[in-house]
Design a protein around this nucleic acid. Structure first.
Lengths: 212, 212
DNA sequence: CACGAACCGTACCGTACGGTACTTGAGGAG
DNA sequence: CTCCTCAAGTACCGTACGGTACGGTTCGTG
């Protein structure tokens, strides 16, 4: 097929500043607070410029998602030789990072925005959010899974299935609860550690699981 | 510690019909489609009656949540003597029912509504939705957990923790994905079975887990 | 029949938003 | 200095919503 990443709009610094302000407005007051007039006032720009740059309000929202996704680039940990302890540590770090990202103000606000918009418009924003926001973290996790298998530390038939199991163990219903307005956990690290314990019990190979 | 269920507004049949129509509008067109004028037209009632019955628009939304929660009353399975197979079956049925409920049109629409409203208004609707919508299913699951433990089939320190593990294994990130507009699974039963397998591997006691 | 309550249908009001057009001013090129 | 471009600021328009007021109708009750 054709090139899969034609959409790196690469906004100008001025536009980045405006998008930053837009995210701030969205985080502070929800979607209702993000009006074109309000954004123009807060960012010291004109509505006309907003419409020139982003087309219409939906274009602005899409640009906000792309902008935020480009900011939160998760780094691939260089996987050296994996030991059981190292794998566990990497998994726990992944779990903590995941909870950290999902409970972030901006992430929650953008997810709320896309979910609120999901009924109409063919859930365009929802797809955009899943594509841009999840690809990075999914790739990192799948990489971790397969590195663990190559090192003989994990056993599974389906890396994607194993990853989704880990995701469920880490997140459970926390994401939806936070989206609904509940406060997050006090201790993400503890939650991640418990999840990784369970995950290794299910998929692990080695001393940790033999002496159960 | 006073009485915990003072809110059974017990709407009149006419009001029930209007709330039903309101849910239909919400499911079909999202929050934007649920206008007071539109509801009055669709339900053949007057706006004045809407405001007399529900106070204002937020009151209407709250009434819709209470109404729907009152409809989806999950039945407590009478727990006879539990065997391992029976426990597994009950767990799988629970998982299927859970996925069924979460992927339902009305549930998704109400969750989207509450999430969209969560930023402002102190997430009143979100709390309402969690309280009314989850209590039933939580009680059923916790009951199942403790019945399994009493029968010597499950081993855990924290029933709530075990339940949340089961929840995560069953649902993973499906709920959020569906809220964002993705289609649900083709085979809920298979997903529930796999989740229960993993759950019993973690918390089960008996032949299923000994000969791993 | 007469009365009153409930309620439908509609018209109405104020407001606030998305989007467009126009004026002003700053800076860069010739 | 002059012209041109870009964008800020403002004024404006159409629309659509939440909420209120009012006339007409049905229905139960004495």
């Amino acid at each position: 097929m054709s090139a899969e990443l034609p959409e790196i709009p690469e906004f100008s610094p001025r536009q980045n500043a405006v998008l930053e302000q837009a995210l701030k407005l969205l985080v502070d007051g929800g979607e209702k607070a993000l009006t074109t007039s309000g954004l123009a006032r807060a960012a010291n720009c004109s509505k006309e410029s907003l419409y020139k740059w982003f087309g219409d309000r939906d274009g602005l929202l899409a640009a906000m998602i792309a902008f935020q996704a480009a900011k939160v680039r998760t780094f691939e940990r260089g996987a050296g030789r994996l030991t059981a302890d190292l794998l566990r540590e990497h998994l726990e770090i992944f779990g903590r990072d995941l909870l950290e990202v999902l409970s972030g103000d901006v992430s929650l606000a953008l997810n709320r925005l896309a979910i609120g918009q999901a009924s109409r418009e063919g859930s365009k924003l929802g797809r955009l959010l899943i594509e841009h926001g999840r690809r990075q973290i999914d790739r990192r996790a799948i990489g971790l899974m397969e590195a663990g298998r190559r090192a003989g530390l994990l056993r599974f038939a389906d890396a994607d299935g194993a990853y989704h199991t880990l995701y469920g163990l880490v997140v459970s219903d926390l994401h939806v609860r936070m989206l609904l307005g509940e406060p997050g956990l006090k201790d993400n690290a503890r939650q991640a550690a418990k999840a990784v314990d369970a995950f290794l019990q299910l998929y692990g190979v080695g001393p940790d699981t033999e002496n159960a």
